[in-house]
């Protein structure tokens, strides 16, 4: 029963959501709207689960003395933002938004900026003309990089057309093939979940 009930709920909601997609009747729209509303409510509750788990794990690790500084900073962040939001709100020009703009945003931009650095190291290490396909990949990457740079002359006048051709034909064809495969994979996985063949999401096969 513990497994059959969620499987039945999953199947029922799968069928309802599929059918309502093809109807514009007021009843269908109302069902759709109600499910979407509940979806958002359930999501809000799951955040509590995440916050509780985060706090519990970090407090345990602080007690054990592991990575204590990082854990305390994490917990301070977790506590300070809701407190600021509760006292002064989250609109513009509040302490919460000051923290967001001057602490959180720069920290996130810093981590994002690592991407540029890792692109450099990955290019240095990974783009080697070991074989013909690897050489084709390397040349395409170089053409694309040059075409997105404003060097002037040939590089700015002719190369962007070559790059756009690569983007519009070989790259697009490969991408579409992968997308069709992903679409079919998603379809079969969803159906397997709905009819109960795939049960890992419930914790296992029992």
């Amino acid at each position: 029963m513990a497994r059959k009930f969620p499987l039945a709920v999953c199947f029922l909601f799968g069928v309802v959501m599929f059918l309502q997609y093809f109807s514009q009747h007021e009843a269908a729209r109302a069902v759709n709207q109600a499910i979407l509303d509940y979806w958002q409510i359930v999501f809000a509750f799951t955040l509590i689960l995440g916050v509780f788990s985060f706090a519990r794990n970090n407090v345990t690790e602080v007690r054990r003395g592991r990575d204590r500084v990082y854990r305390i900073v994490g917990l301070a962040g977790l506590l300070s933002m809701p407190v600021l939001a509760l006292i002064w709100g989250i609109k513009a020009d509040t302490p919460f938004m000051w923290m967001f703009e001057n602490v959180q945003a720069p920290m996130q931009s810093t981590v994002f900026a690592l991407l540029a650095i890792f692109v450099a190291s990955a290019s240095f290490r990974g783009f080697r003309a070991r074989s013909l396909p690897a050489a084709v990949l390397l040349i395409s990457a170089t053409v694309m990089l040059l075409s997105r740079s404003n060097i002037g002359g040939f590089f700015s006048d002719v190369l962007p057309d070559v790059a756009n051709w690569i983007r519009d034909y070989p790259s697009m064809a490969a991408r579409r093939a992968i997308l069709i495969g992903i679409g079919l994979g998603s379809l079969t996985t969803s159906l397997r979940v709905m009819v109960g063949i795939e049960r890992t999401w419930l914790g296992g096969e029992k």
Binding site: G126, F127, R175, L179, I182, G185
Partner: peptide
Amino acid sequence: DSTIQLSFFIVACDYTLIGEEVF
């Protein structure tokens, strides 16, 4: 299944499952 990220994984990882292989 993120086609754009596949290129990064192919360069940086030992093995990469492409799209439908994950399913």
